[in-house]
């Protein structure tokens, strides 16, 4: 017998995967979020989350850590990527590799090493939790910021810069009016790639402190205490926040790629 495939049938494996591992779990998540331990529909998890200063504080703290991490990453990555993309240095790929190399080393090893270094410097690392969180996350996510920035800056057509200089712009003006606006797509994808995981990542913090400081660790603690309902709800809240952030950045980058309007 001859096997015949319709082209549409080729997507069946992925559809099965999607249903089993994305849609069903999401439904389960929603179910748990809006039920109590007995399986009755309720908003109590919802109200509990938003009325507790403890959980809201964690949310805010996570947000702050993620935001500051993103900014620090951007501040380090942009000049690096700029210099790398603009230099004629022949070994720049080796240099670029140096920034990416840490990603190839086992995560646990990296965080453990960082912990040792930080405790060596600070003595007791629990003294500066915010600083240490940001340091840990920056260390982890920096390559994700450098790479998209490097790509968008090295793709930048040099003739735009020449045209700007030709029209009377000094070096700084060329950067502000041409380089920066044209690298916005790179900034956006870098920000997305750093902000979102640092919102939810808890391994770094968990390994550094073993305590519930941010959203990720909060969810982890609920689930490990078999409190499915509260854990599910917090996950859902996080999901919605990420969805909104993604939507906002997409809108922003669409606007840019359509070349409409001015950014500066």
């Amino acid at each position: 017998m001859k096997l015949r495939f319709n082209r549409k049938q080729l997507c069946i494996p992925y559809a099965v995967f999607l249903i089993l591992f994305v849609i069903l779990p999401l439904l389960v998540l929603v179910y748990h979020a809006f039920t109590n331990g007995q399986g009755k529909f309720t908003f109590s998890n919802f109200t509990a989350f938003f009325s507790s200063t403890n959980t809201l504080g964690t949310l805010l703290y996570s947000f702050a850590v993620a935001a500051v991490t993103t900014l620090v990453c951007l501040a380090i990555a942009y000049p690096t990527a700029y210099i790398l993309a603009r230099s004629n240095f022949k070994k720049k790929y080796a240099l670029l590799l140096l920034f990416i190399l840490p990603m190839w080393i086992n995560f646990t090893l990296r965080v453990t090493a960082l912990k040792e270094i930080l405790s060596l410097i600070e003595g007791n690392i629990s003294k500066y939790p915010f600083f240490n969180s940001v340091t840990g996350m920056t260390y982890d996510f920096l390559p994700f910021m450098i790479l998209p920035l490097y790509t968008s800056l090295s793709k930048l057509d040099k003739s735009y810069l020449e045209a700007a200089a030709d029209l009377g712009a000094g070096k700084f003006t060329v950067f502000m009016r041409v380089t920066l606006p044209l690298s916005v797509p790179g900034i956006i994808s870098g920000v997305t790639m750093v902000f979102l995981p640092s919102m939810t990542n808890y391994v770094v913090l968990d390994m550094l402190y073993n305590s519930t400081y941010i959203m990720g660790s909060l969810i982890g603690s609920y689930f490990s205490a078999y409190d499915w309902n509260n854990g599910a709800l917090i996950s859902l809240v996080l999901l919605v926040i990420i969805f909104i952030v993604t939507l906002a950045t997409n809108r922003f980058s669409e606007k840019d790629s359509g070349n409409r309007g001015t950014l500066l």
């Binding site: 057509d157 003739s159 045209a163 044209l182 840019d256 070349n259």
Partner: peptide, 13 residues
């Protein structure tokens, strides 16, 4: 200069 490939700024109208 008028450039070979124009080099018009894509982010500006």
């Amino acid at each position: 200069t008028v450039f070979q490939k124009y080099a018009l700024f894509p982010h500006l109208n």
